[in-house]
């Protein structure tokens, strides 16, 4: 088990270390974007698929990370790479701050409450001259970076984030803490009765999820060298996370990977190969979402793994099979 995990991680590291020397500039940029979206999707998946909290407001953490990076780089006058660790910290801090009021809300109320919170922060940021108001912020210290290695470095950072998100989730969910989280999702009253601290578990997961989105958001805008409130607080961030996770298979680790690949393959085929406008890409994406929800409501990965018996990063725990029972319960 651990051997497989370690070999998987080592293989991924070797692959991503070599990739910039093989791929062209365009492909490298595309993969960087895909890995960042995958990181965000895994973070949304952690919260929705494992802790049962469906967020419509994760764009606020993407923006928090990005603004922290841009403001800190300017204030300290250092290379943006050095202040990158501040991005997840800022997002985590914001999440911890807002968790207290938001956790009083249940289900759909939580989803809408966090979306409204994100809109409030977006309006305040857009109104404040400190954060560049509607015009946004340029990356003032971009000249301190080695621009020859800019694209490969970002790709490597994105790889590390995506790998950390996926492998970290795998380890987390196989730990005692992960079991506690999943028990809260499945039945919070029962979880409480066996001594799981529901609010504490939710808070930790929420903060981790926000931190991951903050880091990925910061790297995304670092690659643009420019940050505008309209794109940072864009609700498409969370819509994309949700589409990728739910189409791929919520509550699985493989699902978001499949979802991300499908998401970008669709975009490249419709806008690149077929040469259609972005509008038709959205139509295709919506159709895939509708089709998946009609024919395989649990997502693509659970359907595939049930059909071919595939499992790579399963976090399911199956009860020992009874001698008399013929069919194992796959659910």
């Amino acid at each position: 088990m651990h051997l497989r995990l370690v070999s998987g991680v080592v293989a991924s590291i070797l692959l991503s270390a070599g990739a910039p020397f093989v791929l062209g500039d365009g492909a490298l940029r595309l993969w960087t974007e895909a890995l960042l979206i995958l990181t965000m999707a895994q973070m949304w998946n952690l919260l929705a698929g494992y802790a049962g909290l469906v967020s419509f407001g994760h764009q606020v953490f993407v923006a928090a990370g990005a603004y922290a990076l841009f403001l800190a780089a300017e204030a300290l006058n250092v290379s943006p790479y050095w202040v990158l660790p501040l991005a997840p910290l800022a997002a985590a801090f914001l999440a911890a701050l807002v968790a207290l009021p938001l956790f009083r809300l249940r289900d759909a109320y939580f989803s809408i409450g966090i979306w409204v919170f994100s809109e409030i922060v977006a309006t305040l940021v857009t109104k404040s001259s400190l954060t560049g108001a509607t015009a946004g912020l340029p990356l003032k210290t971009s000249s301190l970076m080695d621009l020859d290695w800019f694209e490969p470095t970002l790709f490597w950072i994105a790889s590390v984030l995506a790998l950390a998100a996926t492998a970290g989730l795998l380890l987390l969910m196989r730990s005692e803490f992960g079991l506690g989280i999943m028990s809260v999702r499945d039945n919070d009253v029962a979880a409480m009765s066996v001594g799981v601290d529901v609010q504490r578990n939710r808070l930790i997961v929420f903060v981790i999820s926000a931190a991951g989105c903050g880091a990925a958001g910061a790297v995304n805008f670092l690659s643009n060298l420019y940050l505008s409130p309209a794109s940072a607080f864009d609700v498409s961030w969370v819509v994309n996370m949700m589409f990728i996770v739910v189409i791929g298979g919520i509550g699985t680790l493989e699902g978001p990977i499949i979802g991300t690949l499908l998401f970008f393959a669709l975009r490249e085929i419709v806008t690149g190969q077929l040469g259609l406008s972005g509008g038709w890409y959205l139509v295709a994406l919506g159709s895939v979402a509708v089709g998946t929800m009609l024919w395989s409501p649990r997502g693509l990965w659970p359907a595939l793994s049930a059909r071919w018996g595939l499992r790579f990063m399963s976090v399911e725990r199956k009860a020992p099979r009874l001698a008399l029972q013929d069919k194992p319960n796959n659910d």
Binding site: V54, G286, V290
Partner: peptide, 15 residues
């Protein structure tokens, strides 16, 4: 799963 109809309606909305 209540997320299935949610994503479905969001999909219809985008289309």
């Amino acid at each position: 799963d209540p997320l299935a109809p949610l994503l479905l309606t969001f999909g219809v909305s985008i289309i």
